[in-house]
Design a protein around this nucleic acid. Structure first.
Length: 359
RNA sequence: UGGGGUGUAGCCAAGUGGUAAGGCACGGGACUUUGACUCCCGCAUUCGCAGGUUCAAAUCCUGCCAUCCCAG
């Protein structure tokens, strides 16, 4: 059922990222109903396993049902170079990267804009749950209307110049609404599960993946904060800062990974009290717009994480920031992102570099 | 060898006559476009071994074994 919008004199050409999942399919239907001349693109990013083939087929199927042109873009090599390799390299350097945060600006949207320009599409859209608003300063990324759906955390690194051309049709929708809309288009898509781990891991587990990519595992020492050995670990790559389960060894009580030294293959463990941090340093900071050198904000260390009141001290070049938590909070991990909000508005964010624990 | 202590699941550990807490580890699931975190479920027919007392024993008795400490 397609109601052509009469008011829309010229169709607005738009390139939509169609993954074959619920959200992008619903987006396609919505955008079409809004009078956009939609072309769908599915990025073929990975080669392993059946699941990805099925995903491409579902996307093609949905596009056909909606009667919109569909392009499958083979970007496997670029994806590997840009996203996968830097992911592995980050791990090698002792970081715990968030591939989605980097993939969006550095790869996914980038590729889509390239194609959009080639096709002469002024607009680019995805099924992300986020909004974009404009004020005197320009455009800002906002949280989705429905907080449980909000994915702005993953998008904070999108440059402002792109926001003008981006449309997020699901920004004010709930997951249920999206599911209904998708169901009206394509049953098999609507039945898809939401959950997703790192998209390029396939069936395998993260540790196996890292292993296959050259991060060998070697037994080493668990040490306490004093540096005294208290156990044996299976290889520092198997752990991530903040982890406090599946350590592979019983210590009598819960222990948390406080830090990891991949060079010396040492994993430092502490108690839950040891794992509280009051302050951290961000690098690769990106502000949505120029920000004052010192300000208050709310911070999130995770997409669906708690909102934590903080003060932010920016360096002169606005590339680094010191974030102080009003209340000490459980540690994050180097390589993860901290995103700053003012209400629903995304102020910016950066990559966690150093954390200061409680004495 | 003599004296003392201890032996409960992979680890730690409650439980001293009434029919095996808990934590960690492990397995499974939920949550989730990141790693984690969190949540749920499962996990000793059996308490070093062998006898004995008792309606009833991991808990009492006897013997043996193992292990730790002290003793020159």
């Amino acid at each position: 059922m397609m109601t052509k919008n009469k008011e829309t004199s010229q169709p607005k050409k738009l390139l939509l990222g169609l993954s074959g999942g619920v959200d992008s399919t619903a987006s396609a239907a919505l955008l079409k109903a809004q009078g956009f001349e939609v072309t769908a693109v599915t990025l073929d990013t990975w080669q392993e396993g059946e699941t990805d083939r099925q995903r491409l087929e579902r996307a093609a199927h949905s596009a056909a049902l909606l009667g919109i042109p569909h392009i499958i873009l083979d970007v496997r090599e670029a994806f590997y170079d840009k996203v996968v390799l830097s992911f592995v390299n980050d791990w090698r350097e002792g970081l715990t990267p968030n591939p989605c945060v980097m993939c969006n600006p550095d790869f996914k949207f980038k590729k889509m804009f390239e194609l959009a320009d080639k096709l002469g599409c002024p607009y680019v859209a995805t099924g992300h749950y986020a909004r974009i608003k404009q004020d005197d300063c320009g455009r800002w990324l906002y949280r989705a209307s429905h907080r449980p759906q909000d994915q702005s955390y993953f998008l904070y690194r999108l440059p402002e110049k792109w926001l003008e051309r981006i449309r997020f049709p699901l920004g004010d929708k709930t997951k249920e609404e999206a599911r209904h809309i998708a169901a009206a288009t394509s049953d098999p898509v609507a039945g898809q599960k939401d959950s997703q781990d790192i998209c390029f891991l396939g069936q395998g587990k993260l540790r196996d993946f890292l292993n296959q990519h050259g991060l060998e595992e070697q037994e080493g020492a668990f040490v306490n904060r004093a540096g005294e050995p208290i156990g044996t670990h299976q290889g520092s790559w198997r752990y991530t800062v903040g982890q406090r389960r599946h350590l592979g060894q019983a210590f009598g009580s819960r222990m948390t990974v406080l830090s990891i030294d991949h060079r010396q293959n040492i994993v430092v463990l502490g108690t839950e009290e040891d794992a509280q941090m009051a302050e951290l340093e961000l690098v690769d900071f990106i502000g949505s717009h120029p920000l004052p050198p010192f300000f208050e904000a709310e911070a999130q260390l995770r997409s669906q994480g708690k909102t934590l009141p903080v003060t932010v001290q920016l360096d002169d070049d606005q590339r680094r920031a010191t974030v102080r938590f009003i209340q000490a909070t459980r540690l994050s991990s180097p390589g993860q992102s901290l995103v700053l909000y003012e209400g629903d508005r995304v102020l910016g964010g950066g990559i966690v570099a150093k954390m200061r624990f409680n004495p």
